[in-house]
């Protein structure tokens, strides 16, 4: 992926970094932001209702493109991804706010703090540790390409 960023994208990412350092989202910390266009976030599994993920730690990679924040970044869980009905084993996440166009719900008003909090609450509200239907087939088909290249259907955003 091309990493030539517009100055607008650079400033925005820098502002979000500063904001994150000042007030990190609950249960999350930044493992790496080097280069600035690729963050690795460490997420403590949330307590949640059923404590499904309470003792686990996950890692997320966030890759910003040059049209950020007009376009959403690529956001994937690094292996091993949480076992969750909306998270594929290759780390791809079925959550509308991560995608633009069609049914996507990405808004430039979202920040990475808000995005990781949404992901954490998605884990917290799970009632069952279960892989998405068709997980093996999907992962075999798409491998490690960008999740933005998949067509997503978001029919159930509350898990």
């Amino acid at each position: 992926m091309a990493k030539t960023l517009s100055s607008v994208a650079q400033r925005r990412i820098q502002s979000e970094l500063t904001e994150w350092m000042r007030s990190p989202p609950e249960g999350c910390c930044l493992e790496s932001c080097e280069p600035m266009t690729s963050w690795v976030v460490v997420m403590q599994g949330p307590e949640g209702h059923s404590r499904l993920y309470a003792d686990e730690v996950f890692r997320l990679r966030i890759d910003f493109g040059e049209q950020y924040p007009l376009d959403p970044p690529d956001v994937v869980f690094l292996a091993p991804a949480p076992i969750h009905p909306h998270i594929y084993s290759n780390g791809h996440i079925c959550l509308d706010i991560l995608y633009s166009g069609n049914n996507g719900g990405w808004s430039p008003a979202l920040t990475m703090s808000k995005v990781v909090l949404s992901l954490r609450s998605m884990l917290a509200s799970a009632t069952e540790k279960k892989k998405p239907p068709g997980d093996a087939e999907y992962c075999a088909r798409v491998g490690n390409r960008s999740p933005k290249l998949s067509r997503w259907q978001f029919e159930d955003d509350k898990v």
Binding site: Y88, P132, E137, Y138, L149, S150, R151, E155, D156
Partner: peptide, 27 residues
Amino acid sequence: MDAASSGAQTEPAPAAGAPERPSDEEI
């Protein structure tokens, strides 16, 4: 809506006689 129906769209095996659906990449 049924939770099972959300997620990445899978490509169904083309039924006999039915036109093959384009893949995600093609679309």
